[in-house]
Amino acid sequence: MRNGESGERGALGPHGTTRAPEPLRVACILDGTADAECRPPAVVPWLDGLAGERGDLALSVVDLAHYDLPPRYAGHPAGQLHSFTGELARAEGFVVVTPECNRSFPPQLKQAIDLSYDEWHAKPVGFVSYGFGCDGVHAVEQLRSVFTELHTVTVRDAVGMDLRLTDEKFPAGGSIYSDGLVRAAGALLDQLTWWGLALREARAARPYVA
């Protein structure tokens, strides 16, 4: 077993009852380097609230704005790179929150992704994307290709937000998180949790071979 994973599912409790698995550890990777005015307001607290209502996953935030990452991978990660890769290693799944920039995702996010390798293996990845005049679908499609190379499983459903439309719909400052976005986030978290628990068991049973 690696990274302290128990791999238990349906273990028996003290009275012979089935014990629920430990909550899935999910890292929410936020491209905090982007202009705050160009991000959906309170996107991380919104996701954290949805996760907290479920009880089967625990969300932690990995904000790229808090890390001074090197331009290239070091043979022996130290300092903030060591802290960053440690967060990825502890996680059992990921939600990547990204803007769309010129039909792609930001270079800071690509830099952060490329600075790790083993830490991504055999874990699920979901996406929350946004943009002005688009919902980030082009950024997500490119990220799916990147994460395939890193031996992850990207979940089918994603959450996409067109910030221009939400500004028009809520000119007085109401919540942009409509029922449709809540349902989309629920589907994403459902799939992320299913794959995360299944891959937890698989990694515990046998080491992943890249």
Rank of each mutant, 00 (worst) to 15 (best):
D135H: 00
P45S: 05
Y177A: 01
H82F: 10
V128P: 01
E168R: 14
D157C: 09
G79H: 10
F147E: 00
A187N: 05
E5V: 05
R144M: 08
F127M: 03
A65N: 10
D135I: 01
C101N: 10
I113Y: 02
L150W: 14
L24Y: 04
R72Q: 12
V43M: 11
G133H: 09
L150C: 08
N3W: 13
G131I: 01
S116G: 14
G180H: 05
T166V: 12
V153P: 02
T154P: 02
D118R: 13
L50Y: 13
L188Y: 06
H66A: 15
G186W: 04
P99G: 05
A158H: 08
H15R: 14
L64C: 06
K123F: 08
L30A: 07
P40M: 05
V44P: 01
G186T: 12
A158V: 06
W46N: 08
V209W: 09
D35L: 13
L165D: 12
I113K: 02
P21V: 09
L165I: 07
A89G: 05
E87Q: 15
A51N: 06
R144Q: 10
P70M: 07
H66G: 10
D48W: 04
E168Y: 13
N3C: 09
G52F: 02
H76T: 15
V159D: 00
L81A: 06
E87A: 14
Q191M: 10
P70R: 06
A65S: 12
V140T: 03
D63M: 02
L30C: 04
R103A: 12
Y117A: 08
